[in-house]
Design a protein around this nucleic acid. Structure first.
Lengths: 206, 206, 206, 206
DNA sequence: AATGAATGAGTCTTCATTCAT
DNA sequence: CATGAATGAAGACTCATTCAT
């Protein structure tokens, strides 16, 4: 009786948790928080109620985990995209486009972040707002790096406008019928242009 | 043939309905849809369960009515503000500021529109999106009136950016602690400036 | 101020009550007791809740009135039919046929008596059973008049069999799709034959 | 891989379900469908609301299960009784007597089948009528086996009369005060005689 | 670690009935 | 006599969570 928990077991355990999380993203993304029940998730994942509560304290908890995972996915995508570019203006433009495209390509996660995580418990609301705020802070940082070049403006407010423009645009794109949608790249470009003009940097990139 | 339905009765009936609606706005705005129960509304309004269901088919129904009333209040405020101004650019700026201020002054309604009406039933979601879309259409109309003066841009996308910027800014202002808030007029101005620059009209108004 | 209630008013009053009764028969016959609400009846009759409770103490009360009216209609039909015949055997046969045909021709009333008045309050159940019992007593009386001619049998039991056979036959006829139904006269005859054979009087009539 | 679902658990589960069913039969038989509430059943069975809805989709569902169980009990009793006899006429007589006695001995189930299952939802009504129709079909089959010996008659109609006679007789016996009741065997015999005479087979058995 | 039966607090909703006008 | 707004008791049902196995 040497190994109580073998590495293999730990691996399996992790896989089980990830499975639940993946399944939860689908359900929450398509049905929302309240319409998704624990039995739903359990059934989809092929496990059991008991297991569920082994891996997550409660329903709120798995939603929180889902939300945080969405936040990380987005951050990863953004960081990766920005790292590939040098010019600060181009970085800002790339960030907008990458965010838009990420959400367009991951509609379940987009739906969760933009639509389904509103109006829930304070804790969940806070997580959602933190994700959005962190995007805003990225924008703010970029703005500060350009403060000499741009006209004076309140970076806090401008960052909110910037992010709000992206989110509403994505939301609208997601709710547009598939046949009527423009290619996401086109819209992402247009949004980026609007935002850059918004900080008086329209000419710099185009 | 006496008056079976006296004018007095109709008046009282209307008042009763309005009372329920007003009370519902407070509750929904502060606790959200799910945390608000029919008994809450009934107790606040001083009426009875039966009365509630006499005036509204069900809980969803009163929320729909609330949402529509919010939409109308905003439209009224906007139309009034715009009618007081001639210059198209100034109109756009005024609209942004008036929308921002209206929501800042009516936090329950703002909370309902921006936060609590997300992720509910398809019907409610549709009403919410219709309100937002109607703001977008107003912006689009204004843009079309200026199409000659401005650089070419997709009015559909730009209108979404414009409205998204306002809503996210309001949302952020609402979630900021009262002591830390800037005066709403300041922020409204800043948002308006961002949006006007976004359509390359930054100079026209300033 | 001589006449407080003119004859004309009394007449109208009666008409109002009859209207409610007629409308109730349709509703109760088609939807049953519980699925029929007072507002339904009121709406159909074009009157008001208040009026309803002026003419009937409560919902049970109008159902009782409906049931009693059904009982009277049937009695009237039977008495009339029997009075037209002399021979006791033929009378019994005529009674079966008339009962069957009456119910076949008045499906709402049949449905109320046979199906919808079961399982309700003790009072309503009693009224229903009294109607059926009174049919049984008619059969018993007829049997007593023939006691010399027939083999000895328990008239109480035989009468129940007799009536039960008719009711179940009607019920089955009513639930048969219209296209698949035999003409009610044929079935009525066959039921009558069964019942007459049941009292060993098969040869006497045929 | 241990037994996750032990036989013991399955057994207990089954017992729980049967307990609910048994308790429901008592309640439905004595108070009828509408007067019986889910809390009643739950309290009687010593389980919980949640358990109730774990085993049955809703109140209608448990009534359906009750009704089907009643139908099976009767079928079992009849088949057993008939299998013990050879002569076709005697079989028919035995069937009548066994049905009567079964219902007399199980007044709750009788009450449910005869009285309380009328006028409910279409689904429940259908189940009830199917039970009765299946009895009718048994009678029809028996009649067809004797078609050569008996005078020509519509087996469909005759079967309904046959069954209707039994049910109305039982119903009347059940509603008779205990002190005034004849022994059920006596009545069963009399009903059987009526029915056999009804198919012109009175002499064959007596 | 896994299972799934058991729990029960919490809500919405219906509808017969009353009564002020 | 007529009206219809107002009442509130009563019941069905959901689902997150627990715990014995």
């Amino acid at each position: 009786m040497v190994y109580r928990t073998t590495p293999k077991m730990a691996e399996r355990k992790d896989a089980h948790r990830r499975k639940l999380l993946a399944v939860a993203i689908r359900r929450f993304g398509r049905q929302g928080y309240h319409a998704t029940t624990v039995p739903h998730i359990v059934a989809d994942s092929g496990s059991s109620t008991g297991s569920f509560y082994f891996y997550f304290r409660n329903k709120e908890d798995i939603f929180a985990a889902v939300l945080e995972s969405v936040g990380e996915h987005i951050s990863d995508a953004l960081n990766e995209a920005i790292a590939a570019v040098r010019d600060p203006f181009l970085q800002m433009r790339t960030a907008v486009e990458r965010l838009f495209l990420f959400l367009a390509e991951n509609p379940d996660e987009a739906q969760i972040l933009i639509v389904e995580s509103s109006g829930l418990s304070p804790r969940l609301h806070r997580i959602r707002r933190n994700i959005i705020s962190s995007h805003c802070r990225s924008v703010e940082r970029a703005l500060q790096g350009l403060s000499g070049v741009l006209p004076p403006m309140n970076p806090d407010v401008v960052a909110r406008c910037w992010v709000g423009a992206v989110y509403e645009s994505v939301h609208h794109w997601l709710e547009t019928a598939t046949q009527k949608r423009l290619p996401p790249e086109k819209i992402a470009q247009e949004v980026a242009r609007f935002n850059l003009r918004g900080i008086s940097a329209g000419e710099e990139v185009r």
